[in-house]
């Protein structure tokens, strides 16, 4: 079983469009993962039907029990995240600012601070319109720890892959190069690095290449919105070549693509040219992972 992760650094570079295109060629027992848990979008093109869902608990939620609080102010003074506020003359924890370290509970001289597990999102397994299963999630807004949620859905996908005897898992990664991206690429076999033909796309790809160089994973390049800016195209080609990253595909900039997305069309499904393009890309990735 091989795991392919699609990442780009920059948001809006085309990860989801390309992942959805690749997924068209998956077999029924293969698995797709939407690891952009902040803003999961594959569902829009793949019309998944929910099979099962699970709560995602992450971290701890602390609460000051007002009946017991003696207003000593210790927690307020010592919290490293300034997460304790005074509301109506009571000390109250601001759940957004709170990182759940428990220092307040440790310091409280009268044990007035209680703790519970924090429900921060949902994990889903669904069946897509193409027949294969998709593992996805939704992180509750304003939560941290998307890296942990990404790790958990990847684990679900791996277990499912073993059960179903899958040969391939494709993962749509999150934007950025932080915690959740690191989590998405950990333990995978091959990365498809999707670059956008813009100055931001180039800059963000340089950082992504730097981030991924120490991972024991194969890397292949892809240029999206190709032709939008010829000088950036050339720089991207040179960047990939200089890092010995083979370019396995291009998607030419076209004003039609947003129109197709508007109609919720997965590119290879209805358009022959795109079908050939994505089939070629899929086959090259399969060859590369062996």
């Amino acid at each position: 079983m091989k795991e392919i992760v699609v990442v780009s650094g920059k948001g809006g570079a085309g990860k989801s469009t390309i992942t959805a295109g690749l997924s068209y060629f998956l077999k029924e027992n293969d698995i797709l993962v939407d690891a952009d848990v902040d803003a999961p979008n594959l569902k829009i093109l793949l019309e998944p039907e929910l099979i099962r869902e699970e709560d995602f608990y992450s971290g701890k939620q602390f609460k000051i029990e007002q009946d017991f609080c003696i207003m000593c102010g210790r927690c307020y003074q010592e919290c490293s995240f300034e997460a304790i506020e005074i509301v109506n003359l009571n000390y109250v924890i601001d759940d957004v600012a709170c990182e759940g370290c428990g220092l307040c509970q440790f310091l409280c001289p009268v044990n007035a601070i209680s703790v519970s597990d924090k429900l921060t999102g949902k994990k889903y397994v669904s069946k897509t319109k193409y027949g294969f299963n998709m593992v996805h999630a939704l992180l509750n807004p304003s939560e941290e720890n998307s890296g942990k949620l990404v790790a958990e859905i990847k684990k679900i996908a791996k277990n499912l892959a073993k059960e179903q005897n899958s040969s391939t898992i494709i993962v749509d990664g999150p934007p950025g190069i932080g915690c959740s991206t690191i989590s998405a690429i950990s333990g995978s076999d091959i990365l498809l690095l999707v670059a956008e033909s813009t100055i931001s796309g180039l800059h963000d790809m340089e950082r992504l290449i730097e981030l991924t160089k120490n991972f024991k994973v194969k890397r292949k390049g892809f240029i999206n919105k190709f032709g939008l800016n010829h000088s950036i195209d050339e720089k991207l080609v040179n960047l990939f070549e200089s890092k010995e990253i083979e370019i396995v595909g291009y998607l030419t900039y076209s004003q039609n693509i947003p129109q197709y997305l508007k109609k919720r069309v997965n590119l290879p499904e209805h358009i022959d040219g795109y079908k050939k393009l994505f089939e070629g890309l899929y086959n090259r990735l399969m060859e590369a992972v062996g």
Binding site: S16, A39, N41, P141, S142, P258, L261, K262, R264
Partner: peptide, 21 residues
């Protein structure tokens, strides 16, 4: 927000978050 189904879906999530705070 971007005028695509992806953009709209993400916008709704963000809107909920802003409402929450």
């Amino acid at each position: 927000a971007e005028d695509t189904p992806f953009g709209f879906s993400d916008f709704v999530v963000l809107s909920d978050m802003l409402k929450e705070i």
